[in-house]
Structures are given as structure tokens and as C-alpha cells.
Write a protein that binds this DNA or RNA. Structure first.
Length: 995
RNA sequence: GCCUGGGUGGCGGAAUUGGUAGACGCGCUGGAUUCAAAAUCCAGUUUCUUCGGAAGUGCGGGUUCGAUUCCCGCCCCAGGUACCA
């Protein structure tokens, strides 16, 4: 073998590990560069080829930056708290820590094989007590802080308490939903418990009864971003709304800064837009409508205060607190019935049932704050209790839902838009001129909005307001395998554990299930099971999955520090992440929470930056190529007679199920299975089904002799169904490899109707790669067969990093051959090194410098796929030139080393360099002089169509070029004797002649 | 519906500021080598063609000497999101 990748790669992997080649220094004269991957959850399934895609890209970039003279921080770790290990623990009793450790070992093994330049000394695991000690500590900081709207940052809670003691809460503008007013004296008179509960209303993490997404299937609550279409994101269990006492994070306080911060970071528009939509800022006004005959005011939020004269009714959410009180006797039973119906509908139904308009009149009226007219108050479930105030002023002419509602129930539709027809639908554009609206008449909408808000504030019926869709994030989970809270209770009042008692480690429990009383699993721990116990009890909840991942990028800077979460001098040096690579699925979860915590830690003065990830690239998914084949289900009931050693006769009735794998010719034109092929008539030995049943019957009845036998029942489903075939049982022509399939335990009841492999051609379909879809391809297999360098380059060669693309091993030979071709530049037929020490040729220099330029450009714009192409072009050209010049090959080797580090290390030594030094070699310098040519082959086009090329000196002026071109015989031919209308000469590019 | 991407040979894809459309690789076809196969090497490979050319980057228009690239209007695909007032 010429290019022995197995030997080479094993050798350099060991070398890097032993020499700690990729250790990052915390302080350096070099400029720093921080390249981060989203750390993985170590699942039991191991890595498939999609996982390393982003890691390969970030590794290439890290190695490139090292060559460019940067001190690079490129760490890796594990997001190792999570549900799957806990579910496994519930099923098997194995401690999640053990499962997790096993999975991490497997991940590490797989990662190591790919040759990543991680600094493994900095590894972090969110589930290790040394790590979560600091997650608990950050929680404490959040608890001891509130958000001051005046300073526009988080402040210590002591500052708030001092203000309460001196001035009460009127002097404070803080982020809270607390509306009661108290004086300094009131405050001082409150009990500790009362003070504590008021403070909860201000703290950045707080305990409150809140409506949560309760998932009975998982026995825990979920955050909004973990719920998709009313079911849990990962497992698909239904989710319902439930009022529970939970820890929450006051992320709302940061809504505005999370929005504006997006402008200064280099992320994709799609992720930024997702975050903007999630935060959901809308500007408008809150307006209070008096209820006729009650001392009550309904507050609504509207983005269109300019349309207030178009209000012809109001709609409250069925859960709105006023509903029962204001409903008239006449409508009481209908309203009660409507409320009941609405409560029965799951969130999911309510969301999906958009077209169906429902509602109910309450009989009550509100007073229009400007016109004084009475407008009816309705309830309807299209108004959400959880958004805004749970009530809307309905303007049917300007809002399609209000219009539909009004039409459906025959409510008046007022037109307040000048010269606009609203008889067929509402007019929702903000560009109309207002009419029939008293003081707003003849104003364009945007002016009318401002005027209306001014007038609303003047009359004291409301005020201009900014509303956010973003909700505070629930921070408790009723699970075992997560960070315990640094919290204990005296009665119902929570207290923080002091810093010197951290971490509160996970206590051992007998089972990982909730208690009989429905308490979380930690409630099973006895007092002595806790490493620290205070008060009446410890907190039973654990933190959600996103707790540990919200700050892990900081810990890599100082992973072993036992005194601080990160030392200030280290975080000052490394600063924020320069390049973050990971999937876009975390847009509204991890990426938002990490930004939130970063801003908080910045506010508190612990870190010098308030955006964690300066530039982010979202790699696309690698999709699997699932295989399907038609199968026919057959169930058989067999009755047979046998007798055992004692001569006793036994009649046995056995139901058996089989699946037939039919050949294409065994299906008729409608795709129906032709029964003939398994007719039980005829020779038993030649009939596959009979043969199979006989052999199974024998096995079933061991020790007995089979005497007679007949099929009692035979059911055939003549319509074949498509069945997934594991992709490792498919050959490169998409035909099933029968031997492989028959070895698979899940296919043991399958009978192929022929022994010939080529008869079973599979349909392929591109889907998400997953274990359940039987389309998983592992990197281990590729590394074993082709080597890590081939895997790295091939994954990059598949297509643009950010694009989703199907995995297809067909092209892998091309990349592997490229590396072999590279090897052959250095070696002769006998695999002996043959290098030329002399001066390089002009052609070779040109090829090299062209490549330097392209590779560098490609890396700078993260175009790794074209990078691989350019290496191929380079090696093809050098091969054609028969170039084995040492200087050229040395530069090429450095250039290639980020992509294919193992072979580069090997060739680097072949070239006579010291082992291991290539990682910190100097990136080749591009010199344009080598590309300067005396001549250029001008493409000459006529009316934009390229007709021929003409080689001309590059020094010619445009006029000279024009003359030369027109003097050509070919040019005259294309002119057909006519005079050219115009000749355009772009020097060094193109000549275009207009005829 | 809205937002963000995207649509180029048989396939993955390239064309960075408007300037030779299809780089590079796969696959396929033919040839060389071989007893044979694998591997390797060479040539060809957008389509149609009367072999002169003609058409061609989802569709229809436009701007331009020149458009995959810019503008307008559609269609389709992927991802996100939604009674958000």
C-alpha cells in the first residue's frame, strides 16, 4: 500500500495527545481567537456522520488561525445533563451518571478518531459538581439582583431593599408585574415573609405560581421553546397548561437589549429574525374602557390606536377575570357553557382550529372612551389570556379576525378609512387616511397613531406602550438528572445556601420517579442523603437543560478554577467567542438564554462583554438516504401433529407471521402481490413459505418428530407496504444484500422470494438522519475504510457548510484518490521519497500561488467545499507538471494541513521538518507577481455570445485590443460584412462586439 | 398568511464586484494496461442539431453592449413562525 492512512493517522493522533500540541495558553503575545462548537449531548446512539460536520469546519478554521499566528482557544465538552439518561435510569435503575460517563467515553473515542485539534485539558461537563457548583452560583447572583429600568441594567437586590426602606416602591422603576404601592413605613412594617414575597416580584430569578407547560408523559414542565405544536419537542408527548409554583427567569427584563444587541453581532438573518419574532416587540397603546354599570375598567393593548373610532365591540378571553361578574343574567348560562367548551379544548386544538369562528355575547357593554357610545362585550377564544391584557378592542374594518367575528355574529362594521372599500374584507395596511373619527379625521395613519396616543394620555385613559411577546422562562424541572438548586425552605419561604456550602450535589435516590405524592424525584432523598441540608427541606426541583449551556463558553477559559466561575484576567484576555458553529435549531432556546446570562454577568461586572458569540455559522443538516422495499405481510396458522419419545401424540396449533420480500415481477401492474408465487400447492421443497414454516415448526418442537402438517389458515395482505431497510444492508446499486439483511434480528421473519441480490432494488428517499429511520451512517466506518483525512475533506466537499445535504458515500473515492495523488507527488512507484531540491518552475509557482490565494479566500468566507476543489485542481496541475519540487510541496503541505492534518504531518516530516511543528508553521504568503502573465486569452463575444478566444498581450490598450480583434479573420466572419455598432473592451476580461 | 433561505447537467455542486455558464468530484461511455478482475492511465460526457449552428441557470417580463447575478410579477421546495390584538 502506498498511502497507508491507518498507520499515519494512528501515529499522529498519539503524537498530538502525548505532546499536548493543541494546548492553548491563557496569556500570549499573539492575538487571541476563540473558536467554539456547540457542545453535544452525549446520547447513547453515538455520533453519526452529521455530528462532526460543524466540528470539522471549526477545526479547519482553528488550525488555519494558528497558522496565521493566532493564539487559538478551541475546546470541547459535554452538555451532559438531560432526559434520555434519566429515562434509561427509570427503565433500568442504572444511575444516569454511569450511563452518561459511558456515552461520553464513546463520544470521545469517536471524536478522537477524526483528528480534532481540541485542547482536551479544558473539557467541561455540565453534570460534574465542579462545573455545576458555578451554575448554582450564577443562579444565586440572579436571585440577588433586580432589573433597574432607569440604569437599564441589573443591580444588586440590596440597592432595591435600601430604596424600599427609605422611599417605598414608588421611587423605583424596575422590571416587575407587581402593581401595589407601598411606602417606606409600610415596608418596614411587613413581616419577613411578606417582604420576601414582594422581593420575589423583582428578583431576576423568582419563585411564583405561574401557568406552565406541564407534560404528563414526561412528568415535568417544559419551557416555551421546548413545546412544539402542543407536544414536547423531543418526544412528542402532549403538553397542557397547569398552574404551578415554579422558579422562573425574568428574561423579559432584557427583551429590549436582546433585540438591540442583535445589530452588533454577525449572525445569519434567519436566526436574528427568529429571535426578533420570538421577542415579538410591538408598539402601541394601552387603553382602558369603562364597563357600563360597573366600577371596572377593561384594559386593552392595541398597535392601532388610530383606529379607535372603528371600535364596534370588545372581546375578552374566556379566562378573563371580569367575565363572570359583568355577564348579564340573560347570557349567564351561554357564557358558562362557552367557557366550559373553551377550557376543554387543548391548547393544540385552539391553535389548529383557526378557521372556525366562535364567541359569545356577555350582554354587558363598555363605554367608548372618546365617543361615549356603548359597545357590546363579547368573549371569544381567539383572544389569548396569556398575551397582552387578555382583552382586545375590536376594530372590524382594520383587523381581519375582528372583521370575520363581526360578520359571523352580525355586529356593526364601522368604516373609518377614507375611500376604502371594506365590504369584502378588512383593510389592514397602515397607509389609509382616517375618516369618521372626530379629531383624527383626514390624518394619515402614522400621524393619527401619534395623535391618538397623545390624546389618550391627555385624557388619562391609557398610555403609549411597548409590548413584548417574550415570556419569562420557567426554570424548574421535576426531574432527577439536572443541577440541584442552591435553595432550602423554611416553611414556604425559600433561602439561598451560602457560597461556601456549594455545590449542592445530587443526592442518591432509590428510584428516579416522582414520589407517590407527585413530588419530584429529589423528594425521595432523606436528610442525610444531601451533602448539605438546611431549613425544613431542600428544593426538590432541578434546573432545566439550558442552565449549564448558558455559560459553558466562559468556563473553558478557566475550567479548573475552584474559587471563581472564571478568573477575571482570563476572561479579559479571551473575551467573547469569535466564531461559534452549531445548528440553527437553538435559535430561540440556548442562543437566547446564553445571551441573557451573558448580559446579566456583564451588568454585574464579572465579564467585559455583553454578547457571547460575535460571529456564528449554522451548519446545515446532513440528511440520511433511507431505503425502502415493498413487503407483503402474511400470517399463517399451522396445525401439525408430532410425537415425542414416549410415543405420545401432540397436535400443535401455531400462529406465525412472516413478511415476504417480493421481486418486482411478483407484483402485478397495480402493485398487488400475485398469490401464485407462494401457493402452497406443489412441491413443498420448492415453496419458500412451506419450507420456512416447516423448519420453524421443527425448531419450535424440538425433541419431537414432525408427523403431519397442514396450513389451517393463511392470510395474505395483497397490497404490499413499504418497509424501511437498514442502509448497511444495501449495496452501491441500491440493491439489498440479502445476507446482511437476514443477519439482522429485526428481519428474521422475512422471506426473500429469490436468492439473487440484484432482484431487490430499493427506493431511496432523503430524510433526517436518525436511528429510528435506519439510515444512520457512522463516521467510524468511513474512518476505518478511508481514513480521517478523507472523512474530513469529504464532509467539507459535500456542499456549502450552511446548506442541508444528503449523505452519499458514492463520491468519497474521489476525495480519497486526491490524497493518494498528493502522496504520489512525493513518492515514486516504489513508495520511495523523491524530491527535487532545486528552484521551482514558473508553472509550479503559478499553480502554488493561485492556490494560496484561493484557499485563503475560501477560508475567510467559510467556503470549505470550494477549498477542497481548489486543492484538487492544484494537485492535478502539479501532477501534470510532474512537479516534485521541495519548496512548492512544503508550502502546499502547510496549506493543506488544516483540512487533512494527519497526512500533512507525515509529509511535513518527509520534507525534513521537525515532527509536530506544522501546526504552528507560517501560512504561505501569496505573491501576486507569480500570477502576472504576458498574454491573456480574450474571450471575444458578439452580442453577448462568446465566439472565439484571442490571445493578446496584457499590456495592450483597449484601442489596440479592439484593432487586433477586428483584424481577425474570425471576427470578420461573425460580422458578416457589417460594421460593428459598438465594441466594448474590458481590459483583462472580455471583448464584446455589438453588431 | 408572514419571515428567512433556496431552485443551475444523470447526481453533489462552482461561477467572490453584472463579463467565457456547468469549475471540482461522482456517475456514465469508449480506449489503454491485464490471462482476468481490481486499481491505474487516456479521451469524451448540458440538450437538440441538417454538424453550419441553435437553445439553455424554475416560469413570464424588464434594465444592460452583456444577466445564474440587478428590478417587477408569478410558480415550486426547505426551515422558522402564527388567532400576538
Amino acid at each position: 500500500m502506498d498511502y497507508n492512512f491507518r498507520e499515519i493517522e494512528a501515529k499522529w493522533r498519539t503524537f498530538w495527545a502525548e505532546n499536548k500540541t493543541f494546548r492553548a495558553e491563557d496569556h500570549s503575545e499573539k492575538p487571541k481567537y476563540y473558536v467554539l462548537d456547540m457542545f453535544p449531548y452525549p446520547s447513547g446512539a453515538g455520533l453519526h456522520v452529521g455530528h462532526p460536520l460543524g466540528y470539522i469546519a471549526s477545526d479547519i478554521y482553528s488550525r488555519y488561525k494558528r497558522l496565521k499566528g493566532f493564539n487559538v482557544l478551541h475546546p470541547m465538552g459535554y452538555d451532559s445533563f438531560g432526559l434520555p439518561a434519566e429515562q434509561y435510569a427509570i427503565q433500568t435503575g442504572q444511575h444516569p451518571r454511569i450511563t452518561t460517563e459511558q456515552n461520553i467515553a464513546r463520544y470521545r473515542d469517536q471524536l478522537d478518531k477524526i483528528g480534532f485539534s481540541f485542547d482536551w485539558e479544558r473539557e467541561v461537563r455540565t453534570s460534574s459538581p465542579e462545573y455545576y457548583k458555578w451554575t448554582q452560583w450564577i443562579f444565586k447572583q440572579l436571585y440577588n439582583a433586580y432589573y433597574d429600568n432607569q440604569t437599564d441594567k441589573a443591580e444588586p437586590i440590596e440597592k432595591l431593599i435600601a430604596t424600599f426602606e427609605n422611599e417605598g416602591n414608588t421611587a423605583i422603576d424596575a422590571c416587575t408585574d407587581f402593581e401595589e404601592v407601598f411606602s417606606a413605613d409600610d415596608w418596614k412594617g411587613y413581616s419577613e415573609e411578606k417582604q420576601n414575597s414582594i422581593l420575589q416580584e423583582y428578583r431576576l430569578t423568582y419563585l411564583a405560581d405561574s401557568w406552565v407547560n406541564w407534560c404528563p408523559g414526561l412528568g415535568t414542565v417544559l419551557a416555551n421553546d421546548e413545546v412544539v405544536n402542543g407536544v414536547s419537542e423531543r418526544e412528542g408527548h402532549p403538553v397542557e397548561q397547569k398552574l404551578m409554583r415554579q422558579w422562573s427567569m425574568r428574561i423579559k427584563a432584557y427583551a429590549e437589549r436582546l433585540l438591540t444587541g442583535l445589530d452588533k453581532i454577525d449572525w445569519s438573518d434567519s436566526i436574528k429574525d427568529q429571535q426578533r419574532n420570538w421577542i415579538g416587540k410591538s408598539r402601541g397603546a394601552s387603553v382602558r374602557f369603562e364597563v357600563d354599570g360597573f366600577d371596572k375598567k377593561i384594559e386593552v393593548f392595541t398597535t392601532r390606536p388610530d383606529t379607535i373610532y372603528g371600535v364596534s365591540f370588545m372581546v375578552l378571553a374566556p379566562e378573563h377575570p371580569f367575565v363572570d361578574e359583568i355577564t348579564t343574567d340573560e347570557f349567564a348560562s351561554n357564557v358558562a357553557e362557552y367557557k366550559r367548551q373553551a377550557s376543554l379544548k387543548s391548547e393544540r386544538d385552539r391553535q389548529s382550529d383557526v378557521k372556525n369562528i366562535t364567541g359569545q355575547n356577555t350582554g354587558a357593554f363598555a363605554i367608548h372612551p372618546f365617543s361615549g357610545e356603548k359597545v357590546p362585550i363579547w368573549i371569544g377564544d381567539y383572544v389569548l389570556a396569556s398575551y397582552g391584557t387578555g382583552a382586545v378592542m375590536a376594530v372590524p374594518c382594520g383587523d381581519q379576525r375582528d372583521w370575520d367575528f363581526a360578520k359571523h355574529f352580525g355586529i356593526e362594521i364601522k368604516n373609518i378609512f377614507k375611500d376604502i372599500d371594506i365590504s369584502e374584507e378588512a383593510y389592514t395596511e397602515k397607509d389609509a387616511v382616517i375618516a369618521n373619527s372626530d379629531f383624527l379625521n383626514d390624518m394619515p395613519a402614522n400621524k393619527a397613531i401619534k395623535t391618538a396616543i397623545y390624546e389618550i394620555e391627555q385624557r388619562g385613559i391609557g398610555k403609549g406602550k411597548t409590548q413584548y411577546r417574550l415570556r419569562d422562562a420557567v426554570f424548574s424541572r421535576q426531574r432527577y438528572w439536572g443541577e440541584p438548586f442552591p435553595v432550602y425552605y423554611k416553611g414556604e419561604t425559600p433561602y439561598l445556601v451560602s457560597d461556601e456550602d456549594l455545590p449542592i450535589t445530587l443526592p442518591e435516590v432509590d428510584k428516579y420517579l416522582p414520589t407517590e405524592d407527585g413530588e419530584p424525584p429529589l423528594a425521595r432523598a432523606k436528610k442525610e442523603d444531601w451533602n448539605h441540608f438546611e431549613g425544613d427541606r431542600m428544593e426538590y426541583n432541578t434546573m432545566p437543560g439550558w442552565a449549564g449551556s448558558s455559560w459553558y463558553f466562559l468556563r473553558y477559559m478557566d475550567p479548573k478554577n475552584d474559587d471563581e466561575f472564571v478568573a477575571r484576567d482570563k476572561v479579559d484576555y479571551w473575551n467573547n467567542v469569535d466564531l461559534y458553529i452549531g445548528g440553527s435549531e437553538h435559535a430561540t432556546g440556548h442562543l437566547l438564554y446564553a445571551r441573557f446570562w451573558t448580559k446579566f454577568l456583564y451588568d454585574m461586572g464579572y465579564i467585559p462583554f455583553d454578547e457571547p458569540f460575535q460571529k456564528m455559522i449554522n451548519q446545515g443538516m446532513i440528511l440520511g438516504n433511507s431505503a425502502f422495499h415493498k413487503v407483503v405481510d402474511i400470517s399463517v396458522k399451522v396445525e401439525y401433529l408430532s410425537h415425542g419419545g414416549d410415543d405420545s401424540e401432540v397436535t400443535v396449533n401455531v400462529p406465525m407471521n412472516y413478511q415476504f420480500l417480493p421481486m418486482e415481477e411478483e407484483l402485478d401492474s397495480d402493485g398487488m402481490f400475485i398469490f401464485d408465487v407462494l401457493s402452497i400447492e406443489g412441491d413443498a421443497n420448492s415453496n419458500l413459505l412451506v419450507k420456512r414454516v416447516l423448519s420453524d415448526a421443527k425448531n419450535l418442537n424440538e425433541g419431537y418428530e414432525l408427523k403431519s402438517f397442514h396450513l389451517k389458515e393463511l392470510n395474505v395482505n395483497f397490497t404490499p407496504t413499504l418497509k424501511r431497510i437498514p442502509v448497511n444492508c444495501i449495496d452501491k446499486n441500491d440493491d439489498i444484500i440479502l445476507k446482511e439483511l437476514q443477519n439482522n434480528e429485526f428481519y428474521s421473519n422475512m422471506i426473500a422470494t429469490s436468492e439473487d441480490n440484484t432482484k431487490y432494488h430499493c427506493l431511496r428517499e432523503v430524510e433526517k438522519m436518525s436511528k429510528s429511520k435506519l439510515n444512520v451512517e457512522t463516521p467510524d466506518y468511513i474512518v476505518d475504510k478511508f481514513g480521517a483525512d478523507t472523512l474530513r475533506m469529504y464532509e467539507m466537499f459535500l456542499g456549502p457548510l450552511e446548506q442541508s445535504k444528503p449523505w452519499d458515500t458514492k463520491g468519497i473515492n474521489g476525495v480519497h484518490n486526491f490524497l493518494r495523488k498528493l502522496w504520489r507527488l512525493f513518492h515514486d512507484q516504489e513508495n520511495k521519497v523523491v524530491l527535487d531540491d532545486g528552484e521551482p518552475t514558473k508553472d509550479a509557482l503559478k499553480t502554488l500561488h493561485k492556490t494560496i490565494k484561493k484557499i485563503e479566500d475560501d477560508l475567510d468566507r467559510f467556503s470549505f467545499n470550494t477549498g477542497v476543489s481548489n486543492f484538487m485542481i492544484c494537485v492535478n496541475e502539479l501532477s501534470d507538471q510532474k512537479c516534485n519540487n521541495k519548496q512548492i510541496l512544503e508550502q502546499l503541505t502547510i496549506l493543506l494541513s488544516p483540512y487533512a492534518p494527519h497526512i500533512a504531518e507525515e509529509l511535513w516530516v518527509v520534507l525534513g521538518n521537525e515532527a509536530g511543528t506544522i501546526s504552528y508553521a507560517k501560512f504561505p504568503e501569496f505573491n501576486e507577481d507569480y500570477l502576472v502573465e504576458a498574454n491573456y486569452a480574450y474571450p471575444v463575444s458578439f452580442n453577448g455570445k462568446m465566439r472565439f478566444k484571442l490571445e493578446l498581450p496584457t499590456a495592450l490598450t483597449p484601442q489596440e485590443v479592439e484593432q487586433e480583434v477586428l483584424a481577425q479573420e474570425q471576427a470578420q466572419k461573425w460580422l458578416e460584412g457589417k460594421e460593428p455598432k459598438k465594441v466594448i473592451v474590458v481590459p483583462g476580461k472580455i471583448v464584446n462586439i455589438v453588431v
